[in-house]
Computed example of a mutant assay.
Amino acid sequence: MFRSLEWRTNSIKVEDAEEGRVLIKEFDVVKPTLIFTLYNIACFVDNLLNLSIVKTEDYYFPSLRERVENEVKAREILSGLGVKCPKIHWRKENVICMEYIDGKTVLELYRDGSLEEVYDVSKRIGFEVRKVHEAGYAFVDCRAENYIMRDNGEIYRLDLEFFTKKTRFRSLCDIVTYDVSILGLSEDKCMTAIRGFHDGYGRKLSKTELAYISLFSSIYPLSLKEGVDEIANRASNALTLLKESIKDLNLLKLLKSLTSKMEE
């Protein structure tokens, strides 16, 4: 279902080699072009809403060469921050051969694990993302599928081709893509994961992030071939987040107050 729109932007193969089991990633050109066209449109709209349309630092359209180089540079930076990533064995113009990490993606872990596990792992990821942002960098794409956990509890960060210097909008993208990626979970696990991530990151969701989550979640199922249950969960969880934001803003009280004044 909608396979041509899948978010995976590259060809991935797992093979046996002298180094052991390896993952070979061949970089695609077409899908990232489409994704970053959407990214830059969203960036334009965001700058427009913030009255900073001439601000160009948020726009980002990495070339194929830059995406490959980002994978290498990111590992050098992240290793210094204590963030684990698969080692690169070799690379060519548009291909990277890296260490194969045996384990579950964090999204799979959330589906199968307990609420306590979901909270703990999500909090660890939120703390790591905060460290990366404080160091001046951003992933741009921070979905739960881009993390994998080994049986020993070590969490590895995958897919670093969009890793770049931090801006306000790129940091926002990290938070939004993470939260959107877990909306298809059951409500208890989704809200637990969001709470854990933001506890680790050090702050709650902002109104701007909630708005982008609501918008992006409506098109997200097209990319992941989600089933009926996941799509239903996504809609329900997005609505729950919106309701919570309304409570936080006391909009309901304000509306009631205005209504009572009009009646007087």
Rank of each mutant, 00 (worst) to 15 (best):
E134N: 11
E134M: 07
A135Q: 11
A135R: 11
A135M: 13
G136A: 05
G136Y: 04
G136C: 04
Y137V: 02
A138D: 01
F139S: 05
F139M: 11
F139C: 07
F139Q: 07
V140N: 00
D141V: 02
D141Y: 02
C142I: 05
R143E: 14
R143C: 15
R143Y: 15
R143L: 15
A144Q: 02
E145G: 12
E145D: 10
E145I: 13
E145M: 13
N146I: 14
Y147Q: 11
I148Y: 03
I148C: 04
I148L: 06
M149R: 07
M149A: 07
M149S: 04
M149Q: 06
M149H: 03
R150S: 03
D151L: 07
N152Q: 14
N152T: 13
G153S: 10
G153A: 09
E154Y: 13
I155H: 03
Y156I: 10
R157V: 14
R157E: 10
L158Q: 12
D159Q: 15
D159N: 12
L160E: 12
L160F: 12
L160C: 15
E161A: 15
F162Q: 07
F162K: 08
F162P: 01
F162I: 10
F163S: 05
T164K: 13
T164N: 08
K165I: 04
K165L: 05
K166I: 00
T167H: 06
T167R: 06
T167S: 09
R168V: 08
R168S: 13
R170F: 08
S171G: 13
S171T: 06
L172T: 00
L172F: 01
C173K: 04
C173L: 05
C173S: 08
I175K: 06
V176M: 13
T177C: 13
T177Q: 11
